[in-house]
Design a protein around this nucleic acid. Sequence first.
RNA 1: GUGGGUGUAGCUCAAGGGUAGAGCGCCUGACUGUGGCUCAGGAGGCUGCGGGUUCGAGACCCGUCACUCACCCCA
Length: 423
Amino acid sequence: MFTMIRAIKGIKDILPDQLPRWNVVEGAAHRLARCYGFREIRIPIFEITELYIRSIGGTTDIVEKEMYTFNDRDGTSLTLRPEGTAGVVRAIIEHGLANNPATRKLYYIGPMFRHERPQAGRFRQFNQFGVEFIGSTSPKADVEVISLLWRFFSTLALPSITLEINSLGQPPERQRYKAVLLTYLQGKIDRLCGNCQRRMEFNPLRVLDCKVMECRAVTESAPSLIDYLSTSAQHFKDVRAGLEDLGIPYSLNSRLVRGLDYYSMTTFEVTSSSLGAQNTIGAGGRYDGLFEVLGGKSTPAIGFAVGLERVISILPESAMPLPNPLVFIAGFGNRGLPASFRLLEALRSKGVTAETDHYGSSLKNLLRLADRLGASFTIILGDEECMQGQVLLRNMYTKEQETIPLNSAPDVLANRLKTPNSP
RNA sequence: GUGGGUGUAGCUCAAGGGUAGAGCGCCUGACUGUGGCUCAGGAGGCUGCGGGUUCGAGACCCGUCACUCACCCCA
């Protein structure tokens, strides 16, 4: 006996029972993104490692300890993509897409990889739906992107969701604020948790994000970044006004600090209290500096990414459409069995979802199977029916049966199922 | 990387150191050509794995692996 091989830790199969949910969510993503003028792009699953180091930032957790990195045969370091923006921006630069107004709004759907310890809502392979709107510094672009994000969640009727926004300012503003914040924190350093004391050295903004009660108390009265905005203050005001104008509910969260280095100015995050500790279902922000970092011409941009596993885990039943009505063919007997197989093919050629059982077992078993498969109708076709050129059409909900000619059965069914009767 | 919880039938879970069980699901029959309900019967287990304590371990101890939740971090 060989030992059983299991899927890799933190990497999940998506089984047939779950797939309709994925289709609904991905369908909404495609439909709404196109509706907002975004076009799909598909980029590679893996890239040169350097791409992610430069874009995400060398001191972030993602780059330091979460990437799936391996050497190609010639020794080149490659990495499975931990997020989508870096690859999209690389493709935009490589193909000059920023020069064409028709390719400045892009979206993608696909798997990302991070070597983290799995937990509720966190996986080593997970799927993201993301959009990137490049070439515009206008606050209207920010509003458009956030509006799409909000509409996506609203359309899916996700429960208890909250939108929070903040502005990180432009690099000089943030630099100035960091100094102010550090001075404030230095006086209270002994009250901070060990983690935050370390954060003060390499990323003081993250102290604001700490969940430890004592740290929160310390930062409660800390100076707020928003008060230190100068060049980007008006932009942020316009974004807020734009959201209010469209009736998109948000709250201001000056502690909202995104983890990736490339964010600047507007940042936002949508959470759901229906999830566990990993409650962010979508987040994003502006990243005006990224193109230059990746060797492109300076280009403003804003985007978001949505965690599809998390969305699907809280997707309400009400968002699910009724499944296709199924016709089950119960054929048996020396004549009925071959005739039923021809009928099966004829039904399918008319686009009717049809299924049968090839064992030719008893009618009782066939009907039970039809029931288990959730059939709306069962066609009974035994030797008697076959010789008379007829079939019995049984409505599985009402148990009504009627006799119809064998050769007109496909048309009758195709016609009747145009208006599916729900269970 | 750190900490907690849990590993027993396909699934959900019982079994105070003394014969491994239930519910659901599956198969068969009652009903030889009519599903769901009911009733009767049946199949299905190296109790995650390896050691130890004991007359005796699913249970207790040690190790290990897996799953899971949380920290960290993030979508």
